[in-house]
Simulated scan of single mutants.
Amino acid sequence: MEFQRLLQIRRIFAQPEALELPRGREIVQRWPDADVVPVENHWNIPELHGDETNVPRWSRIKTEALVLGVKKSLTVKPNGRSADYIAPSTANGCAMACAYCYVPRHKGYSNPVTVFANINQIAAALERHVMKQGIKLEPNQCDPELWVYDIGENSDCSVDALISDNVEDLVGLFRELPTAKLSFATKYVNRDMLAWDHGGHTRIRFSLMPAHLAKSIDVRTSPVAERIAAINDFVDAGYEVHVNFSPVVITETWLDDWRELLQQLDAALTPAAKAQLAAEVIFLTHNEGLHQVNLGWHPQAEKVLWRPDLQESKTSSNGFSNVRYRSGSKGRYVRQLTAMIAEITPYCRVRYAF
């Protein structure tokens, strides 16, 4: 089973306060044969974090280790791109292993899923924030009518839903909030979610890229063809479904590859799916620290991700030193791809591209 391929949990590193909460106990019961290892801090776990000897075991650790913690900061952050606001995380890390993922930069040399057991506190903080906003009076690129909250900034919610009911709990919360909806991007098709009662207040964003490239850098994810095929089913189930063209990676054949992908998307979608479609376009941002980690477990990916001949250094808003495609060239790349989207999928509104 796909679930078993991604998650064969053998050790659960748990803060004692997480084990005292109902959600923590539920998660432990899902893997009754796993060893439970008490830890003081869900970040600072010597066996998992900051130990470069773990790099060759990158995917195995993701498969076999799970961390249970308590989320201390319940801050809701403004965003304005994917969503109006970023919700406090119910998890961070991922069982999948996309070679360009930024979350490992924060977590040392290993990046298994950390689940936060204090879901009731997180949900209450979100509900208070939504109520304070009142009605959305002016439409924006996030949504014309409702406040949008991204609940998956640091994890993949479709995978998180295999581990606990945290995501479904938030879907149920937003179903009852008339002025807001939740949103998350995903590279995993979790068909159990088709049966959820979401009330039309959940936006799922399936991330897409050319399939042959995804085989190399979207490690352990659902195949791109499966993600495309799922769009119609989730629309039929009442979800709002957008796509993320992300990350866009420049190769010698990138325009031809994206043309083929857009044609596949256009051929697959039903009229109902096309009528509600919108997209975000995000070009690759990479990081030297992650580049060095990847060389230890997946050097083939770095042949396309690390391109000093095309990239320049840039300090991000959070202070990280990243590399991005050179500004003069990147503007041309953005124009080329958005023009192709308008040509092949003219019904697909581009919410933003950078």
Rank of each mutant, 00 (worst) to 15 (best):
T114S: 06
C142N: 13
Q311I: 12
A124F: 08
E26H: 11
I282R: 12
N92R: 14
K303L: 12
R128Y: 00
S110F: 11
S73Q: 14
W31I: 06
V113D: 05
K72N: 14
W58K: 02
N140P: 00
E2G: 05
L177H: 00
L48M: 03
E40P: 00
F283R: 03
I217N: 02
N41Q: 08
T338E: 05
N54E: 05
G289I: 09
A211P: 03
V171N: 03
G289E: 10
C157Q: 14
R175D: 02
A342K: 14
P144G: 05
R220Q: 12
T186F: 01
H129D: 08
L194H: 04
S207W: 04
G172S: 12
V70K: 12
K181P: 02
E153H: 05
V241P: 00
L305C: 11
L21G: 10
Q276P: 00
E153P: 00
P144Q: 09
A185L: 10
G69V: 08
V171W: 11
R175Y: 05
D156I: 07
D35A: 15
E17L: 12
I45E: 02
Q300L: 11
Q8W: 07
M131S: 11
P139G: 02
S216F: 00
Y100D: 02
E302S: 11
D192T: 02
D84N: 14
N44D: 11
V334H: 10
D266G: 04
K187I: 03
F3A: 12
W258T: 07
H42L: 03
F184I: 01
N111L: 10
N41C: 11
N287A: 12
M1G: 09
D160N: 10
A124C: 10
V235F: 09
W43C: 06
R332E: 14
E240C: 10
E17P: 00
F354G: 15
Y325A: 12
D156F: 01
I344H: 10
L305F: 07
V235A: 10
R203P: 02
E20A: 15
L182I: 15
A301F: 00
Q133V: 09
G80T: 04
K132G: 01
D33W: 01
N232M: 03
L177Q: 02
N287R: 11
K132E: 14
W306S: 11
A214F: 06
T179M: 04
P112R: 05
V67I: 14
Q311L: 12
N111K: 10
W258D: 08
V67Q: 06
H49E: 11
L284Q: 03
E343D: 13
K62Q: 15
K136M: 03
N294R: 14
L170R: 11
T114K: 05
G69N: 09
L262F: 15
P299S: 09
L284M: 07
G108C: 06
